[in-house]
Amino acid sequence: MKCVRCKKQAEVELKSHNAAFCRDCFLYFFENQVLKAIKSFRMFTKKDKILVAVSGGKDSLTLWNVLLDLGYNADGLFVHLGIEGFSDIAKGKVERFAKERNAKLIVVNLKDEGIPIPEVKKKTRRVVCSLCGQIKRYYFNMVGLKEGYDVLATGHNLDDEVSRLFSNVLHWKMEYLVDQSPVLPSEEGLLKKVKPLCRVTEYETSVYAFFKGLDFVDIECPYSKGATFTMYKKHLNQIEFSSPGTKIDFYQGFLKNLKPILEKREEKIKNRCKICGYPTFSDVCSVCRLKGYT
């Protein structure tokens, strides 16, 4: 197979784009897809201070790397979950990356906050993964606001977005559909949130990480009970295989056709946590409740 741009031997075939690329042309393609997402959704500019939520996994390190390569002003934020045999390894990878790229890294340790995940797990009967996600989002937002960042960037890729959309549509979760977007604007107490990898697939992200030699965490969190959307991702891949381009069409079609209608009926959360100011439906937000405030 030959590269469609330069006719060299291809290393990557992308049926959804009707293309095959050599290494250099793939990297050019990938950066372009990210730039297209950043620009078309007006995510940020070179003047903005960007905070990248980094877990040490392939997606978040890819995002940080590509933003730095594209010349954006991007710092990293790592939330140490206090999970033995996992969090330290992840932190090590993120720290090494930051050092190599000479980038600024902020670390929040949930032990210092009094809510390491193993303790939270003991206190709750709910699945700890969803609470863990809530806690991480809480600190991404708080640290971002406190340190004067303009925008928070997360490493969600097209497959993450499409499988979430698919699941939300299958179950008609209207309240989640309203919030599903590559850009969530800032509002009082909430930092603007963006997903610059929303046009690239899991496969394309993996290829990028491989070509760039990124050293990421490749072990599963011991608390994760098999990623929630893995089943949907598998089904969607089957559809994508027989009908290339379906994933991006489904996602872009949602943003273009359904999202504007949904936004009209959106109800904003008006309440703020009386302890920390975070938007919440009750008087005290769930993180402050975990910390013992009532």
């Binding site: 290393e11 075939e13 994508e240």
Partner: peptide
């Protein structure tokens, strides 16, 4: 499926063909 895996030989990726 071809896009579920990286096929690696040395430091290169291989396409299906």
């Amino acid at each position: 499926l071809p896009f579920e895996v990286l096929v690696i030989k040395g430091n290169r990726l291989l396409t299906r063909d």
